[in-house]
């Protein structure tokens, strides 16, 4: 009984949201939008609270005294709400930023630089002329595209040609990205269209 009611409420909420693009901004859309924010806020608070309990407070209660440090540091971040003591929040931010930089730098070198470059400069061992064409396309394209991002030099003189070609390679890349983005957006909409019909029992659940 409650499941069926829930299903219909979900259907109705979907229509309320889509009333915005399909009609115009209206109270139904705003209601649904605010409902989502309210519910999501509560869920995020409880989920993060339970996670802090699991990772930090419970071990602290069990005698892991060191866990007091992240708890205090975490609470320090709320000093951001008090302008006078805002600087206190820089300590936890410093910890997060430091960890992020350290892990980011050490993690990015191999896959994003080393592996990417090795894959680009590895000549094909099979596949004939087409494989060689693709190999040269990627290698030349990559060099020119990277030159396009060398912003410390003006793109004039000997740099003008390669950077112009690099821009074209980037445009092809962005075109492919757009094509894939369309698939992503439409798939999500497809899911909703399917739900719309399922609740009306026009197609099986």
């Amino acid at each position: 009984m409650w499941d069926v009611i829930g299903l219909w409420i979900g259907w109705l909420l979907m229509l309320m949201i889509y009333s915005y693009p399909l009609y115009k901004e209206n109270p139904a859309f705003r209601t649904a939008e605010h409902m989502f924010i309210g519910v999501t806020l509560a869920i995020s608070i409880i989920t993060n609270f339970s996670n802090v309990m699991r990772m930090c407070v419970t071990p602290l209660m069990q005698g892991n005294i060191l866990m007091i440090v992240p708890l205090v540091l975490g609470l320090m971040i709320f000093s951001m709400l008090i302008p006078e003591y805002q600087w206190v929040s820089r300590y936890p931010i410093g910890l997060l930023v430091g960890t992020g930089f350290g892990l980011g730098i050490r993690g990015t070198i191999k896959p994003n630089l080393q592996d990417a470059i090795i894959d680009t400069i590895t000549a094909p061992t099979s596949g004939g002329a087409m494989a060689w064409f693709n190999f040269l396309y990627v290698a030349v394209g990559l060099i020119c595209s990277i030159m396009y991002f060398m912003l410390t030099f003006e793109h004039k003189g000997p740099l003008q040609g390669p950077t112009r070609i690099g821009r074209l390679f980037i445009m092809v890349g962005l075109g492919g990205y757009f094509g894939n983005t369309v698939l992503f957006r439409f798939t999500m909409l497809t899911g909703r269209a399917q739900f719309f019909l399922q609740v009306l029992k026009l197609i099986p659940m």
């Binding site: 829930g6 299903l7 409420i9 979900g10 909420l13 889509y18 693009p21 989502f36 999501t40 899911g191």
Partner: peptide, 21 residues
């Protein structure tokens, strides 16, 4: 509420971008 309010709203709001694209 998690299943019947959050789920349909969460699944509906983001796909709006499909219309705009």
């Amino acid at each position: 509420l998690f299943i019947n309010i959050y789920t349909p709203l969460g699944a509906t709001l983001y796909p709006i971008t499909g219309f705009y694209i």
